[in-house]
Every structure is written in C-alpha cells, then in structure tokens.
C-alpha cells in the first residue's frame, strides 16, 4: 500500500516507454532542426534542440528572478517584518499559488502582451541593449515570446519557492541566530552569514523544486510563448518549450502517428529531467518532506511541520 505512489509512477513511465517503443529518430533527434512536413513525413526533421533551448531559457531565467525575489520576500518575513503584516503577506503570496495557470495565461495573453510590446520591451531594449538577448528585434508575432513567458513563470513559481525558503530560514536554530546577534552582527549580517549558510540545503532544494515546476509548466507558457519552432534571436523572440509544445500539438497528433511518437519522446525527456531535478531536491533536504512542507506552508501549518 505504501508503494502505491511508486506503482503509479512506474505505470506512467511504463506507458510512456511503451508508447514510444523507444523508437529512435536517430542523431537528428538531438539537433536544433525541427521541421515537420505533414505531406512528406519522411523528409521531416525531428530535432529536440529548439524545445530544450526554449525550456531551458524560460525556466532558467524564471528561476533566477524567482530565487532573488523569493529570497527577498522570505528574509523580509522571517527577519524584518512583525508577525501581523507577515501573516497577511504570506496569505497573499499563497493566493498566487492558488490561481489556475490558465488564468495566468489569459491574463498574460490579453492584458500583459500589449503592455509588454508597447512599454516593457522598448524600455528594456533602450537601457539593456548591451546585454546579450536584450538588444535584439521584437517578436515577429505580436509581443508573445520568451520574455512574457519568463515573467509569468516567475510569478507562478514564487509562492512555492518563497514558502519553502521561508520554512528553511525559519528552521535555523534560534541559538545560532542569537549567537551571531550577540557578536554584534546586524540583522542583515545574521541573515547573510548565518541563516543562508545554515539553511543552504533547504534553500537550494527550494530553488530546484521551483525549477522543476517551471520546467513542467505547459498551459500558461503555451498561451504566451508564441509557439514558434525556429531558433530565438533575442529574449523578445517567440519560441517554444517541451511542455507547451506537447500541449499545443497533441491535437494535431491525432492525425499524424509520427508526431504522436515524437511527442511521447519529448514527454519522456521532460519526465526524466523533472524527475532528476526533483530527486536532487529531495536528497538535499533529506527530511523527505519537501512536498508535505510545500503543502503545509501553503496552507499555513508550518509550525506543526517543524516538529
């Protein structure tokens, strides 16, 4: 009975493996060239490179921003703010976690995209043109593209990473914090030199779990990334990602068996990547409680989890 979750996991992996029949698309599977020709499937190229690149760019940038913001949020709540405002802010941050990803998606597509196109991107371009990726041309298809996807992903994973970082920082023993204070450390120095160091496993695990979430997000990304399978030339370019492409294309796959097989291989690659990320995250905390902690912190029962 305790192995039910494992059995489900095994079933999922087994079904995907069976569906793919481990059919190899050859070396070209690992290339950047993707061109699906429905009329002449034999001449199509099936490279996964563009999708991996898009996934890595969106999830990677999102986790960088989310880590910085979450650290600031977690330190504010744990170190600086009194308990009243902290409670309210925690609750509001947790609300973000509850909002469905389709809602993020439609907000991004309808409301944010024009704003990004008219204001955000030109501003970034004029100030950060010297940074790689920020100077390039706008997206060919409206303002949907990598930058918008990164923004949505950042906001979407922040509640998770913040909640985990919060409990990691809170679990630093009071004695250690007091010792640093007694040595004349300011609150910021205590956070930086003691809390961060003592909680570094918990913090890294939070980052990895956030990354896992960002890597696997399909719907919201599918709605704003543009769905273009050419190589991106700047952060404003429309692009694609593994999960969003699967979500987009499963529809067409009904008609094209080759595409169906390709998608399952994409799904397998995605599954393996997220599994590896999650396993490392679990190993880091060693409390084996990462998910439970997530749930617990999101529903506000942190106190009991620390016991």
């Amino acid at each position: 009975m305790a192995l039910l979750p494992f059995l489900i996991l095994a079933l999922i992996t087994g079904v995907l493996l069976n569906a793919s029949a481990l059919r190899n698309f050859g070396w070209s599977f690992w290339s950047f060239s993707y061109n699906f020709l429905p009329q002449t499937p034999d001449q199509s190229s099936w490279g996964i490179g563009v999708f991996v690149l898009g996934t890595a760019l969106t999830a990677g940038l999102a986790i960088v921003f989310a880590t910085l913001l979450s650290l600031a949020l977690a330190v504010s709540v744990v170190v600086y703010l009194p308990s009243g405002p902290s409670r309210v802010l925690n609750m509001l941050t947790n609300l973000l976690a509850g909002i469905p990803s389709v809602v993020y998606g439609i907000w991004g597509f309808v409301i944010l995209a024009p704003y990004f196109g008219i204001t955000v991107e030109p501003t970034l371009r004029s100030f950060l043109f010297w940074l790689p990726g920020f100077g390039g041309p706008a997206s060919a298809i409206g303002s949907w593209g990598i930058l918008l996807a990164v923004f949505l992903l950042t906001i979407m994973i922040i509640p998770l990473t913040t909640a985990l970082m919060r409990s990691a920082l809170q679990s630093v023993p009071r004695d250690l914090v007091d010792s640093a204070v007694a040595l004349g450390a300011t609150r910021w120095e205590v956070a930086r030199r003691v809390r961060f160091r003592v909680a570094r496993r918990g913090l890294s695990s939070a980052v990895l779990l956030g990354l896992g979430r960002a890597l696997g997000e399909s719907v919201a990304v599918a709605m704003v990334i543009g769905g273009v399978t050419s190589l991106p030339v700047s952060l404003y370019s429309a692009s694609t990602s593994l999960p969003s492409f699967i979500f987009f294309q499963l529809d067409s796959a009904f008609t094209y068996p080759d595409l169906l097989v390709l998608l399952v291989e994409f799904a397998l690659v995605l599954l393996i990547i997220t599994m590896v990320v999650n396993i490392i995250a679990q190993r880091l905390t060693q409390t084996e409680l990462a998910t439970a902690t997530t749930v617990g912190t999101l529903v506000g029962r942190e106190g009991e989890l620390e016991r």
Binding site: P173, D175, L176, D178, S179, A180, V181, A182, L183, G184, A185, E189, R193, V194, R197, V198
Partner: peptide
Amino acid sequence: VRQRIGMVFQRPTVFPISVYENVAFGLRL
C-alpha cells in the same frame, strides 16, 4: 553594545563553518 558586552549560550552554538572562521566571525563583520 553587543560588541562590548558579549554572550555565550547554554548549548554550544558553533556555526557550521571551520574553527578558524567561527572565531573570526565577529572580526569579519
């Protein structure tokens, strides 16, 4: 105040760093 009036606690509260860095902590600040 705390730089001039120091404190030692009930249980040993060494930081998870080297012996040297522990003792150097207050000076590094």
